[in-house]
């Protein structure tokens, strides 16, 4: 009898211990990065996030270009990926014939399995040249967008646009998987109600299904945003890595993650290291907030309709 009780106690102790690893690990990460980042924050103050001057020799560390680049590349990614991902999800949950659903869902899900570095490799040797040689001329000459600041200046290849496109491809499976799930969670009665009013299938999707799943879809998009913000390798390989803010999407840029990836092993001064840790800390906090919002929105749909 005592044997069983001891066993139970040991077991309970073990699993609780394992569970506690997770908060412990996160606390350790937050403290380690916070402490390491502190010198940079206290030296640069608010200019750390507002200044555009990132000069290692001069000891000036303004992360604004990297923060800007992270936001812009992720925004391009969402703008491209969201309509496609929602389209695929609608196709898979409402329209596709049964035999087609599994294979298409499998192919789209597979996009999430491709390692980031492979996306980067493909980006360097295929996507970047294709954008430069075909897409940019098309945008400029056929659509006459060359005059707008967004598409002005020389197009060497590696650019904010390339980073945005590759991030779009990478975020797509996440957005579409969540969207598909929340669409499937819409009760059949909502669809019936719309059809009984004489709605066509599209009107049913537009007026009943999508509004019902709205906040879950937004949650999926924000989850995709979380992925895009923290993505490192593929972006580092195609964005051009130049710490400047340019209005043109064809100009090279930088992101927080690629800044860390590029400079970390070469950082020699303590302040430089601390500045990179500080970039990591900003990235940590931003993704934390973004993911928190996403989880909350998806959870809201999962827990049924609301006002």
């Amino acid at each position: 009898m005592t044997g069983a009780a001891t066993g139970d106690r040991l077991y309970q102790l073990a699993v609780t211990g394992f569970a506690l690893v997770i908060p412990g690990l996160l606390a350790l990460i937050a403290i380690a990065i916070g402490v390491a980042a502190w010198p940079a924050f206290s030296t640069a103050g608010l200019s750390f996030i507002t200044s555009s001057e990132w000069n290692v020799q001069a000891g000036k560390f303004g992360a604004a270009p990297a923060i800007y680049g992270t936001l812009v590349s992720s925004f391009i990614a969402l703008a491209l990926a969201t309509p496609l991902a929602v389209g695929v999800a609608i196709f898979l949950s409402e329209i596709a014939p049964k035999w087609l659903r599994q294979p298409v869902a499998f192919l789209v899900d597979l996009l999430a399995a491709i390692p980031s570095v492979v996306y980067g490799l493909w980006g360097i040797f295929f996507l970047v040249p294709m954008l430069r040689d075909h897409v940019v001329p098309f945008l400029r000459d056929t659509l006459h967008l060359g005059g707008t600041p967004l598409f002005s200046g020389p197009a060497y290849g590696p650019s904010m646009l390339a980073a945005g496109v590759i991030l779009a491809i990478m975020a797509l499976p996440y957005i579409s998987a969540v969207t598909r799930e929340v669409l499937l969670a819409v009760p059949r009665s909502q669809r019936d109600a719309a059809l009984a009013l004489g709605a066509t299938k599209w009107e049913m999707i537009r007026d009943a299904v999508v509004p019902y799943a709205r906040s879950g879809i937004i949650g999926g998009v924000i989850l995709g945003l979380g992925r895009a913000l923290g993505e490192t390798m593929a972006v580092t390989m195609v964005i051009g890595n130049r710490p400047e803010i340019s209005a043109s999407l064809l100009a090279p840029g930088y992101t927080m993650a690629s800044l860390i990836a590029n400079e970390f092993t070469e950082a020699t001064s303590d302040l430089h290291l601390s500045a990179l840790m500080a970039v990591g800390a900003v990235l940590f906090v931003v993704t934390l907030i973004v993911n928190g919002i996403a989880r909350w929105l998806v959870w809201r749909v999962a827990s049924g309709p609301r006002a």
Binding site: D192, A193, D207, P211, R214
Partner: peptide, 29 residues
């Protein structure tokens, strides 16, 4: 279906719409 209306076992208001918009949902189409 526009000539033969239907009401279901469980109430099926559209949760994201106001009362007014629910009434006109069939017309808005």
């Amino acid at each position: 279906r526009r000539h033969v209306g239907m009401v279901f076992q469980r109430p099926t208001p559209f949760p994201t719409m106001s009362i007014r918009d629910n009434v006109t949902a069939g017309l808005k189409i």
